[in-house]
Design a protein around this nucleic acid. Structure first.
Lengths: 213, 213
DNA sequence: TCGAACTACAGGAAAAACACCTTTTTAAAA
DNA sequence: TTTTAAAAAGGTGTTTTTCCTGTAGTTCGA
């Protein structure tokens, strides 16, 4: 029976070690090494000449996050199975990871047995998705998707300012635009993001990590 | 050499099992059982007649959170060492846990070795705190504390509703109060929390985890 | 080169939010 | 029972936000 190697990319050390411990107990799998973030992973990849079968990737990390790292891996080591392992992300993040090349999406709220089954399925079929990821995919296909990449830079900039105590007039000033243009930005976003007022926009910005409180 | 028993209270199954795995490898410690939340813990405590030496407690959990559970333990089983084990909480939450009776505060970003050292220190001295907890304590003593317990329940309830797209009139309805009373609540909070508008209140609520997006 | 689509911007009106100040209720203390 | 303080509610006026509709300039592809 072949032994498959796994690399964990996760910034919380205890969690990382703990998951490694769980996986090392599976008899078909072993953890080669652990990385604190994407940059760390790239360094280790560049100095080793042997690559793992599966990379388990956290999404929120300092220095270099899961999405960027996954993109790098898809480009430079497409033979490696990247799988997201995270707590509770929104649909958008899940889709971004999948677009970036992740072959699967696991939520951390699974038990040992399920993790083992998931890893085996990844090896055999190339993918495994927790239900939440399936939902996101279905929604994106059926067009119910919350939003793909509809936001322009100026709108993101605007959303960030919305999350402060500035009035629209002040925001217009900061962005060097007429207050009436700002009105337009806002009204567009109301329709695009399907919210009724500024609070709705603020919540959107926070949930999608455009503004981090 | 005595063997100390530990109970883990943590809602994410994988994480919970993983930590349990790490701890079971320490030769002076073993995990008696794991609980999904505070309610679960109380049930297990009530049916067992033997209690653990240490309880490792997550703070954010559904059903019954870490603070409430810690209060219950301090009252009903003061001989049990409760220790918070969590990711990154604000000063307020740390202080609340300590007030509730937690003997220590560990951040999840520690490595295996440190966890073992921490557990030993807990057994021997009764406490262990990650640096972040020390900071919070020092700040609270030196009066720099962000905010103690200035908010009443009704105000927290109001803050939660503020974070939605409801208008003040609708909020008044939900709270069964006159819109004018709601105006008063808002104006009070503006002064108390030193913000200018609803956005400021929303940000306060989020930063202090009164509302979780 | 024509029009479709997009961006910046305006006017105006109605609704909601904000400010300030007063009065009534309620509940507890003296 | 009177006093007092806090909570709830009312009045009035200003500012900001929201909602419409509409125009001028630009870009870009057919």
């Amino acid at each position: 029976m072949k032994n498959y190697s796994i690399v964990i990319v996760e910034d919380h050390r205890l969690l990382s070690e703990a998951i490694a411990g769980v996986i090392d107990n599976f008899n078909q799998f072993n953890v080669s090494y652990q990385c604190k973030n994407g940059k760390d992973l790239i360094e280790k990849f560049n100095q080793n000449r042997t690559y793992p079968d599966i990379v388990l990737m956290d999404i929120n990390m300092p220095v270099m996050n899961g999405i960027e790292t996954t993109k790098w891996l898809s480009k430079n080591h497409p033979e490696v199975n990247v799988h997201a392992l995270t707590v509770d992300e929104d649909e958008n993040t899940i889709l971004k990871m999948i677009q970036a090349g992740a072959k699967g999406y696991l939520i951390k709220d699974i038990d040992k047995k399920t993790l083992e089954i998931a890893l085996l399925k990844i090896i055999n079929t190339g993918f495994y998705h927790s239900n939440i990821a399936i939902d996101a995919l279905v929604n994106s296909v059926t067009g119910k998707s919350t939003s793909k990449e509809i936001l322009k830079e100026s709108e993101k900039e605007f959303l960030k300012l919305l999350c402060t105590e500035f009035t629209y007039k002040e925001i217009a000033n900061k962005m060097c635009l007429s207050p009436k243009t700002i009105d337009g930005y806002r009204d567009n976003l109301f329709v695009k993001l399907n919210v009724k007022n500024r609070i709705g926009l603020v919540m959107y910005a926070i949930k999608h990590k455009i503004y981090v409180p």
